[in-house]
């Protein structure tokens, strides 16, 4: 196991940030921690990277205990915090050199690991980090987290606020790093990125809702789920919310995902109801649950 977490709890004053969290991340796995702001993702990252001590429980990273072997862990992991934490007044190259030196290595020694990413920011190597665009900062931070060839890489919301194109590029980079033998624990609030992980943990309000492969998690969704569409989205949502048999009503792009309380749900009956609400162009068809559906059902 690359990471083991056993019964970890952490509180800040009267806020329970993490409650009895346990899971394992396998060697060379790309593991996703999926949950919104305030779920406890950053707290867990800080405990695993030895920057914070848990109130209860134990954890190991790369075989080392987070308390007794914390120095060994610091040499074995790369950590990219959610907040940009490089030196704003050092240049791109100076930042990278600094982190390499701190870890007793050189850029040249591990250049093959960062090459793919570094070539994209190399044209700006003399620019101060504070003057880089968001996407460039993110790439530099990743290079700095990798420069000592860590066994385990911790990425805390690397794609938050990043546009879909750059997000896709970032995930392509992660897949390549995984192929080079690095174990990756990554957190994200974007549910669509969950599908790109080997396994995921859904986390909310300090508790793990579920852990499994993305495919298996989706299969656990027990209710039949329907795509509903009509001429007016707002009226449709209101009408479905008013429908006495609804179990859940969530807008999903051009559709509303609808589930019903009854076992013998009849599509025609719902269509007739919606027609009485003056909706037209009504379409109802069965669909497959997504990770976001599962998350919302568990978080309800």
């Amino acid at each position: 196991m690359s990471i083991t977490i056993s019964n970890i709890s952490k509180s800040y004053k009267n806020v329970k940030a993490l409650q009895d969290i346990s899971f394992e991340v396998k060697e060379n796995e790309l593991f996703g921690l999926i949950g919104p702001d305030g779920a406890g993702k950053t707290t867990l990252f800080r405990i695993l990277t030895t920057l914070l001590i848990a109130n209860e429980g134990t954890a190991t990273v790369a075989g080392f205990d987070v308390i007794s072997d914390y120095k060994m862990i610091r040499n074995s992991v790369g950590y990219m915090p959610g907040k940009f934490s490089l030196y704003q007044d050092l240049t791109v190259e100076e930042n990278l050199n600094f982190f390499a030196t701190i870890f007793g290595t050189t850029i040249e020694e591990n250049y093959d690991l960062i090459k793919d990413i570094y070539v994209q920011i190399e044209p700006f190597k003399d620019r101060r980090a504070g003057k880089l665009s968001g996407g460039m900062k993110q790439k530099l931070a990743l290079c700095c987290a990798l420069i000592h060839k860590p066994k385990v890489l911790f990425l805390d919301e690397p794609t938050t606020g990043v546009d879909p194109v750059s997000r896709k590029e970032f995930w392509d980079m992660l897949k390549r790093l995984q192929q080079k033998g690095i174990t990756i624990l990554v957190s994200t609030p974007y549910m669509d990125e969950a599908a790109l992980c080997d396994r995921i943990a859904l986390i909310q309000a300090g508790k793990i809702l579920e852990i499994d492969t993305p495919k298996a998690i989706v299969k656990h969704y027990s209710k039949p789920i329907y795509n509903v569409r009509a001429n007016n989205m707002y009226q449709l949502i209101n009408s479905l919310n008013d429908y006495e048999y609804n179990h859940s009503v969530y807008p999903f792009g051009e559709f509303v995902h609808y589930t019903d309380k009854r076992a013998d749900f009849n599509q025609k009956e719902l269509k007739m109801y919606l027609e009485t609400k003056n909706l037209t162009d009504i379409e109802i068809e069965k669909t497959i649950a997504t990770i976001e559906d599962t998350f919302m059902e568990l978080a309800k």
Partner: peptide
Amino acid sequence: DEPTGGVDPITRRQFWEMIYKAAN
């Protein structure tokens, strides 16, 4: 300007219902 970044999926949808209401 990016009103729902990082917000949980249920609240994100409630937020959009508020947007629909305002537009309506």
